[in-house]
Simulated assay, not measured.
Amino acid sequence: MNVIIPMAGMGSRLRPLTLVTPKPLVKLAGKTIIYRIVDYICNNLTANSKIKTIGFILKKESPQIENYLKDSLAKKYSFDIMFFYQRKPEGTAHAIYCAKNILKGKVLVLFSDTLFFLKKKVNLLNKIDDGTILVKEVKDPSQYGVVTVEENNIVNNFVEKPKFPKSNLAIIGVYFFMDGLSLLKEIENLLKKGHKEKNEYQLTTVLKNLTTQGKKFKALAVDDWLDCGNPEQLILTNKYLLNQQSKISDTLDLYKSQIIEPVYIGKNVVLRNSTIGPNVSIEDDSVIENSIIKNSIIQEKTSINGAKFNNSLIGRFVNYKSNYSSVNIGDYSNFSENE
């Protein structure tokens, strides 16, 4: 099986946190978003040994992303890693088409800003339908691609961000295809005709056409679906992960400080005269002094003094000494009330 992961988005809704570090490389509770996604599919949707190649679709060449993925994933798992490039944002179907060289055989497509969880492991390779679409019931389906289903959860229609939804089953951005070549041919037809919806080549259009041709896709509901697309959602996702597993490194240097779990505190963190938590992630080699911090995400090698943070995002190599209550600070920032 081949896996395709489009990650060509700019992460603009998370800026300035993502001005230097791409969104998939942001860490939540000690692990990057993209690492969590790949690790989960290897252990819960299929056996790692069944994955032949993972193709990552980037906006452009990026040594930072490419080296990280090679170092963190290829060394742990046995699959090959390839990179493809979507130079212009022309939609989800076009993004997948950029990886046409591996659109063959069984193919899993999933997008890089979504974490999801199932109560039971599912081996998609054992399914007998033409494919599987992972979905989740939502309150406002007009913000998502949605499906309607008939008997046995077979999908009978796909609609991209409907104004008047006929279903509350949102597509979470994970798709399994038994025959990648059929998907490729239908995307090529779409591109040849120039058939765009909302100014882009949509994967939902491709799926709708394949369904009309007789292909049967089954909807599989996930138990939890977490979005990492904007600051509010990223903080909620971090909270969810911390509630699954709170962790404090035994290398913590603690002085006159209180920790309110759940928290994640990485290696070689220093806490001085501070209250940390709940729902705070602090990555490796950071120093926190004279601060009260809750519901926040702090990346590695950052120094914070005098903060009273709630619902905040702080990047890598930040030097902060001020008194704002909620911030979003990008990497390598020097943030002082005296400047």
Rank of each mutant, 00 (worst) to 15 (best):
I5L: 10
I5D: 03
P6R: 12
G11D: 05
L17C: 02
T21D: 07
T21Q: 08
P24W: 10
V26R: 02
K27H: 15
K31Q: 12
K31W: 06
T32Q: 13
I34P: 02
V38Q: 00
D39C: 03
L45N: 00
L45T: 00
T46Y: 07
T46G: 05
S49T: 15
K52W: 01
T53V: 13
T53D: 08
G55T: 08
F56I: 08
Q64R: 15
Q64W: 15
E66M: 09
N67R: 14
Y68M: 03
D71P: 09
Y77D: 08
F79K: 08
F79Y: 10
F83G: 03
Q86R: 14
T92F: 12
A93Y: 04
H94I: 12
I96V: 07
C98D: 11
A99L: 11
K100M: 10
K100V: 08
N101Y: 13
F111C: 11
D113E: 13
F116S: 08
V122Y: 11
I128K: 15
I133L: 13
V135I: 11
K139G: 10
D140W: 15
D140H: 15
S142T: 10
V146A: 09
T148H: 06
E150A: 09
N153H: 11
V155S: 03
P162A: 10
P165E: 04
K166H: 12
N168E: 10
F177A: 01
F177S: 00
L191K: 01
K198H: 06
Y201D: 12
L207W: 10
Q213R: 15
Q213I: 14
G214I: 02
L220S: 04
V222A: 04
D223Q: 13
C228E: 03
L236E: 09
N238I: 00
L242K: 07
Q245I: 11
S249Y: 04
D250I: 07
T251Y: 06
Q258I: 10
Q258T: 12
I259P: 02
V263S: 07
I265Q: 08
N268C: 09
R272P: 06
T275Q: 09
T275C: 09
I276N: 06
N279C: 01
N279W: 04
S281K: 07
E283H: 05
N290L: 12
K294G: 07
T302F: 05
G306E: 05
A307P: 06
N310H: 10
N310R: 10
N319Q: 09
Y320V: 01
S322E: 14
Y324V: 03
F335T: 03
